[in-house]
């Protein structure tokens, strides 16, 4: 089978699309969770700060593969936690759960580094004008923190995209690294071509994200 044959016989584009979908869902959930975590970390309530710190330490220091295997074997097989009776759908959402838990800690830490770029006077001015905690956070602090956190958030997104291939461990069979394995098994003589197809595909997918991040962090920077 030649290059064109490989591309027509296997749904390479479809596999990439699965990774993109995993990325988008996980990005959405990890952003929400990451914002909640960072709000807890800057909150005046000690127990919330403690919980968020513990959560971040735990999930950030656990290898993603271990987390995925736990979700698959522990949460699903042992604890019977499931999203759907359909196996494929279930594994798909378990993968998103693992990716979101793991990535949210990096979103939280990126935002926190962004918050550190916001002078304390901004929060004091907000408080002195009568803004409450959430108003200060969402109107004043986070919008500025976000602009200061674009570079680490961009890196987090890139890491998330690559990490979706680890979702193979949670058995999302249709994604790229699984498809690559399948293709190599059937076409062992074409291993280099197959590798290049996926390598180049990933590079094409990720380079624009990096460029966009650089562009945004230069253009949205808060002037002081």
């Amino acid at each position: 089978m030649d290059f064109v044959g490989l591309l027509t016989h296997y749904d390479v584009v479809g596999a990439f699309w699965v990774n993109i979908q995993l990325t988008l869902w996980s990005a959405l959930f990890s952003t929400i969770l990451g914002v909640i975590l960072v709000l807890m970390r800057i909150s005046p309530v000690g127990s919330l700060r403690g919980f968020a710190t513990g959560f971040v330490r735990f999930f950030q220091n656990m290898p993603l593969t271990i987390l995925m295997v736990f979700l698959l074997l522990g949460a699903f097989v042992q604890l019977r936690l499931q999203f759907s009776s359909d196996f494929t759908t279930n594994f798909y959402w378990l993968a998103i759960t693992g990716l979101s838990l793991y990535t949210s800690t990096y979103v939280c830490e990126s935002l926190r580094s962004g918050i550190n770029t916001v002078p304390i006077g901004q929060a004091e001015a907000a408080r002195s004008l009568g803004f409450g905690f959430f108003q200060s956070a969402f109107l004043i602090i986070l919008p500025q923190a976000l602009r200061g956190a674009i570079a680490p958030l961009g890196n987090t997104l890139i890491a998330l995209m690559k990490n979706t291939t680890v979702a193979a461990a949670a058995a999302v069979a249709s994604e790229t690294s699984s498809l690559m394995n399948t293709m190599i098994e059937a076409n062992a003589d074409q291993i280099l071509t197959i590798f290049l197809i996926f390598a180049i595909g990933w590079v094409i997918l990720i380079i624009p994200v990096g460029l966009l991040t650089t562009y945004l962090s230069n253009h949205l920077a808060v002037r002081r």
Partner: peptide, 25 residues
Amino acid sequence: QEGRELTRLRQKVGMVFQSYNLFAH
């Protein structure tokens, strides 16, 4: 010490800082 009542009383007390602290964004 905390809460809504504090927020409400704070509105009555304006503050001007040495470093202006205008919202930069």
